[in-house]
Nucleic acid binder design. Structure first.
Lengths: 199, 199
DNA sequence: CATTGACGTCAACGCCTGTTGGCCTACAAT
DNA sequence: ATTGTAGGCCAACAGGCGTTGACGTCAATG
């Protein structure tokens, strides 16, 4: 072993980089092995050699670590802003999560992968901050909807007002929403009356 | 003309109904003309006869009227709840908007269609309610991100906590968020400091 | 030097897709 | 009864896809 010769795993990385980019920008179905290979200046069969099949390549390319900061150290009232800022920064710098989001829109298995990410990473990071453990999953999911909604508007649908906003503005608007989802009383989320009553 | 014989436009409607369903559940790429035809108990070539090509069929199938209620008649403070309830009800009953959302995730043209819907329908309905006309588009877009985020979580990703929530619970949580996006001071969205400062 | 084995290419397979044109059939009008 | 026409099916095309296997070609190893 010990890196037999100059290339090898290097090519693998090049394929992976191109694949991430293509998956993120065009989604799974519209990304072809051939186009990836062409962009990586390589034969399509090499992609198969290194990753077995398209499915497997996507799995590797879309493996994600949100790298959420330790939120328990964040002062209360700033959690929403910190979290929002973290996500926007992550999305702006690399599109891996966007690739998965795109695919999840039309593929149940990718949706499952997305669910797993938010269950293990977002919910886990957020649960300690919730006043009521029983509602933690629900609160985390609400947080996810708002953050993913921003991602959808900014990177997928390209809604002009969202695209034009500075990261700081997004944080200023969305941060308080996140905070409210995390800390507001579960029966009466905000001010105002609003009976929820399940039964 | 004058409806020559029993079927004809009837078949067209059947195709359209099946197409809506398939597009909504599986997205554009994974929905095939053949599968639509098969489900409609018809030959694939008939689909072409009636709609020209797949693209055109999708356009017709995904034409959407959000049918937003008149929000200016809604008492202030209830707008968010009314709007959220309207969307959740619409989504639960028919999946046309979901079909478009799915497609928009991987097709720029569908994304453009989505943008147009929100520009002409959501922004238009919401603009009169905003304190500052200059910020109306931005506020409407923020509203859209939260509503679409819910749609994504509930109907596409199937995040368990979101799926399990009653429509009333969603309204109770999300309504106030919508209200805040529509009415909160633009520089300091909520409580707390949080300078936005573009320069 | 001979051998091995990984890196890489080429050409092809089988499959599924959107799309087309020809043909059949049955009704409505003449 | 004949004709026109619209509804419908069938068979096939061309093209793109993921995937495969045989075939070169070097560098490192014995």
């Amino acid at each position: 072993m010990t890196e037999t010769r100059r290339s090898g795993a290097e090519t693998r990385e090049r394929i992976l980089a191109v694949a991430r980019e293509h998956f993120a920008q065009q989604g799974y179905d519209r990304t072809t092995i051939r186009s990836i290979a062409s962009a990586a200046q390589i034969d399509p069969s090499m992609v198969m050699r290194y990753f077995g099949n398209k499915e497997e390549l996507f799995k590797v390319a879309a493996s994600i670590d949100l790298a959420l900061p330790d939120l328990s150290a964040t002062p209360e009232g700033e959690v929403g802003r910190v979290m929002t800022a973290h996500f926007v920064r992550t999305w702006d710098s690399e599109g891996t999560l966007m690739a998965l989001l795109r695919r999840a829109a039309s593929d149940p298995q990718a949706a499952e992968q997305m669910r797993s990410i938010f269950a293990t990473q977002v919910a886990a990071a957020v649960a300690p901050l919730c006043p009521d453990p029983a509602q933690a999953a629900r609160r985390a999911a609400l947080v996810a909807t708002q953050l993913l909604g921003i991602a959808l508007g900014r990177y997928v649908l390209h809604l002009p007002p969202i695209v034009e906003m500075d990261p700081e503005e997004i944080v200023a608007w969305v941060g308080p929403t996140i905070d409210r989802y995390l800390t507001a009383d579960s029966a009466q989320p905000d001010q105002e009356s609003g009976r929820v009553g399940s039964s």
